[in-house]
Design a binder for these strands. Structure first.
Lengths: 357, 357
DNA sequence: ACTCGCAATGGTAGCGCTACCATCCGCGCT
DNA sequence: AGCGCGGATGGTAGCGCTACCATTGCGAGT
């Protein structure tokens, strides 16, 4: 029994109503083809590679689509072509505006290339990360973007085994799973120490979150400070205040208060996020400490508000948008069968010098 | 020719190498079934409804899955069952932390129920919204969550026609497409005006973004102020400063400066976001205006930093997490074939009274 | 005139999975 | 003994689409 033997009704309800199976009852490609007076495969070509059909056919198929309100079933198409036009992004959490810019740029760049973003939040629980990985790999995305994720060894193996292009971002590990767009947190930390040193600051301190990447920045900062001979840093005795994730304005206030109790004479604070830095500035205000003069404050991230604090915040700028766009380009290239010239891209960073340091 | 007639190799590479089609070459259900010594359909049941197979079979199938590294192809499963286990969320943009909490909660709640979130950003371009809608509907998600989207009439129609459950959020329109979780922006604005009036404030002003929902809050605020007889508000002459999207700390600073130029005696400012409010506070600081005393400031959103500003920010709290969770529950219920008791849920709001007003 | 090539179209056979029905087996009942 | 019944399992036939190959028709090349 063929579809043609049923009524001419658009949609496959009639067919399934007669005998047998499920079906969504919506308009399918065969309906469009019949309306346009062509075979299904020709209708498919008209939609997916318009230059492979005659102009006349193309017009008729397009008209049929418009008339019937047909929306291609991408699950079926994906199954048949093993191309899902989906890209998955895995982040620890989207709150915490650090990765937002990257996700935003990624989504936009992908949409421009006809891809859709699937978002996964691993939280910080490893078992969840594994379950999530299954859910993601199960959809056979054309690419996976890992942002700020510390993946388990098991996770790495499954990703590798899946054969799906992977882009890691926001970090620069020597041994990426596949591709990578990031920068060196350690060098960023070192650069801040050198900058503060050049400003004449010698009594440095840190307010930092305790995630892995912040740790790397701290390491670079402390080592550079030691190398340059700043106070206390020689023996890794950098005054440090750790704050729990996520880093907030409130933690920054507490952080400065805590540091001042032990080291009332400190003259510079490097914060692992702009939110912390804003908190430090506000706490300094409350204590009538002149930020930028008696106390230098440096943030990290160059979030939108950094230019508008009082005084404006000196901070490390990471081009999150570029990271997202590059990640998208890498994946799109790979999905199109192309080879990428450079599997590891160092996007660098810059110190935006404003009034706070 | 059946799969069984080929070698016992795991994965369908051998089969497809021999003659014919594409195929991903990865482990498929039939491989698992063969390993476990059962039929494919039994393996499927073992994975999807474990209580419908014998404990022994279940164990053997699970072992086979573990041994082969099988990951179900959810596109194929979705096609066969017309259940995608995907939910799409449409937001104008994810930067701008307002909807973050909702998206976060939504993702988590869905993951707990075995659903995956697909994220779409419409930007503010209507043509893009339409293209996006096709990409989304094409994947046949089990639900669509609209957050802060003003959808075109055409968009409404397609959503309706698709038959997919839709939840609109963050607003309370009288005629939702399907389901709705939100609150009345107008009433929120009115409540702030009443609150400020009760605090003895009479010379009110507004700093606001110019999106639709902020407009509704402004309307409620202005009308309530007029009703209560605050200065100028009788004739809708509320001093107002509009700022371009997105609302930022910087816009808030400019906003207050602008208002003060025209109305140096104002004693209260209602801001359409906490970011604006923070900017207003910072500008007031810079001008040595005592916030909470000479000038009352009220924000909107109760973002994380609101409790930590100096002085702490009085603001309107919306439970974005609850919105996300409720939206998830509505969709999961519907997808499971259940009927929802209440198609329109008013989540309300509350004014968090702190030191700034 | 006859091949050759190419553009346009169509038929067929799956992609990997699950809904639907059929079968089988063992159990308690009449 | 024969019956029905429910639990476990299997076979088959698609879900809606596209890869692969075949076919057709027509103009150019020899």
């Amino acid at each position: 029994m063929t579809r043609e033997s049923t009524t001419a009704k658009i949609g496959n309800t009639a067919y399934h109503g007669r005998r047998g199976r499920r079906g969504t009852g919506s308009v399918i490609l065969a309906d469009v083809a019949k309306l346009a007076g062509v075979a299904a495969i020709t209708a498919s070509r008209a939609l997916n590679s318009p230059d492979r059909v005659s102009p006349d056919t193309l017009k008729r198929v397009r008209a049929a689509v418009a008339r019937s309100g047909y929306v291609p079933n991408l699950m079926a198409g994906g199954l048949a072509s093993s191309k899902s036009r989906l890209v998955a992004a895995l982040v620890p959490t989207i709150s915490g505006p650090v990765f937002l810019e990257t996700i935003q740029a990624l989504t936009e760049a992908l949409e421009d290339s006809g891809y859709q973003l699937m978002l996964g939040q691993s939280g910080y629980i490893e078992s969840r990360e594994d379950a999530l990985l299954d859910a993601i790999i199960g959809r056979r995305p054309d690419g996976i973007v890992l942002t700020g994720i510390m993946h388990s060894a098991a996770g790495r193996r499954r990703l590798l085994a899946s054969g799906i292009p992977v882009v890691e971002t926001w970090d620069l590990t020597p041994t990426p799973i596949d591709m990578l767009v990031g920068f060196s947190h350690e060098r960023a930390g070192a650069a801040v120490a050198e900058f503060l040193h050049a400003c004449g600051r010698r009594k440095l301190a840190i307010v930092t979150g305790d995630d892995h990447r912040a740790g790397l920045r701290r390491k670079g900062f402390v080592e550079a400070a030691a190398r340059l001979g700043s106070r206390g840093a020689r023996n890794r005795e950098m005054p440090t205040c750790f704050t729990p994730a996520p880093t907030t304005l409130g933690s920054g206030r507490i952080g400065l208060a805590t540091l001042l109790r032990q080291h009332p004479d400190l003259d510079a604070v490097f914060c692992s996020s702009d939110a912390l830095a804003l908190g430090v500035i506000i706490e300094a205000h409350a204590r009538r400490i002149a930020v930028g003069k008696r106390l230098a404050v440096v943030g990290f991230g160059d979030l939108g508000f950094a230019r508008d604090t009082h005084p404006a915040l000196t901070t490390v700028r990471i081009d999150g948008t570029a990271i997202g766009q590059l990640a998208a380009r890498l994946i799109v290239t790979r999905a199109a069968g192309g080879a990428v010239a450079q599997r590891i891209i160092d996007i660098g960073f810059s110190i935006v010098e404003r009034a706070s340091a």
